[in-house]
Amino acid sequence: MPSKPALREGTAFTGSTKYVLDSELAQIVNVSMALEMPLLLKGEPGTGKTMLAHAIAEALGMQLIVLNVKSSMKLVESLYQYDTLTRLNDSRFGDSTRDVSNIEDYIKMGKIGQAFAADERVVLLIDEIDKADTDFQDDMLDVLDQMEFDIIEIDKRIRARNRPVIVITSNAKKDLSDPFLGRCNFHHIAFPDEEMMGRIVRVHFPDVAQDLLDSAVDAFYRLREIRGVEKKPATRELINWVRALRADPDFKPKKLQKGEIPYLGVLFKKSPDYAVAQNSVRRFRI
């Protein structure tokens, strides 16, 4: 339901302007927030895992801090960085306002550090945790559990002023390590059904014509059935596709029902997939 960013009972989460929330997920978000546990979200790409964190932040009026996990990332980078090079530079030229003898001036907070140091409660999104190795994941959970970490260089302990709302996403089909899972709440976002998808598209295009919406969503689910496609079109592709269809003055929703699918390239982005899709569209008129 495209509800306004309303605050029910102060801090409960009910959905936001651009995010269609099912009541199940809303309940899970609220329980996780109350229990102060990170929420781990899994699901196919395009089911709105990342969007959820944006939506929570928007709905609760909190700042969102995003940590995009990379495979080469070390935990300490997400906590803080000691900018040795700037310090070296400053000590050489001495033309900055920083105090060279004070190492703290050269400590920059990483994303987790920022979330801890923030004056107000923030939403911390840790995106695609599965990219990092297991050690990173476990160590990070330690930090999030304790809500504190040490900056070794200046022997200072950073404690979270407010426990952030933590959302973690993972694309992986395989499970994360047991200790990691033990500290999170878990939800798997299934791919939305047609009705839900219709609502999602409507949130993005409130004035979309009903017949266009219906036939586009219908065709979209038929196209997802095509076998031998490596990357199936997801929500993002559908939204872009609807945008393209709306922009085309010659387009009539009837065409979709007859099996003419324009702008296949918006939906299928890999060239072998595109070829497969084009082939089956031509042959089966789906």
């Binding site: 009541s23 309940q27 229990l35 546990m37 999170c184």
Partner: peptide, 29 residues
């Protein structure tokens, strides 16, 4: 944790219990 959630009054209906217990207890789809 689930008991904690129950004692905090977060779970009022069996529907709530279904989702909350799953999120807390079951860690893989």
């Amino acid at each position: 944790k689930l008991q904690q959630a129950l004692s905090m009054g977060l779970i009022r209906t069996i529907d709530d219990f279904y989702t909350a217990a799953r999120a807390i207890l079951v860690k893989s789809e």
